[in-house]
């Protein structure tokens, strides 16, 4: 499960981004993530993350009654959380551009080498 390993730090940022847009509860969060294409991870992994984020005061939660069944815990972003989200965006852009640059450049040079040999 290398995807899960790679996801670890990134999922936090995604959760923050989703929570920022709308107050959501856990199941909704998992559904949203899935709808964006994250199918491989086990949905339950978001809860330990949410617990940590709450401890770090990035999110707050309120319990709300629902029409069908037990109470739901809704999460919303704190100011600290919003700042963290901005930081995450910066870090992600930095990582993304650099990784992309590495990958595209390295594959280009490999092709070039291959071409040289062929000649």
């Amino acid at each position: 499960m290398s995807t899960t390993q790679m996801l670890k730090g990134i999922l936090d940022g995604c959760l923050l981004a989703i929570i920022k847009n709308k107050e959501v509860y856990g199941y909704e969060l998992a559904e949203k993530l899935e709808s964006y294409g994250f199918h491989a991870f086990s949905e339950g992994t978001i809860y330990p993350l949410l617990m940590r984020m709450q401890k770090e005061e990035l999110v707050t939660s309120t319990l709300k009654k629902s029409t069908a069944g037990p109470r739901r815990k809704y999460y919303s972003l704190t100011q600290k959380g919003e700042a963290e989200l901005e930081l995450f965006k910066e870090r992600w852009n930095y990582l993304q551009t650099n990784v992309n640059r590495v990958l595209s450049h390295e594959s280009d040079t490999k092709q070039a080498k291959g071409d040289e040999k062929a000649e």
Partner: peptide
């Protein structure tokens, strides 16, 4: 956390 997971498992 049990209550939260309960909600999730039910809906799932």
């Amino acid at each position: 956390i049990i209550e939260e997971l309960e909600v999730h498992l039910l809906e799932a």
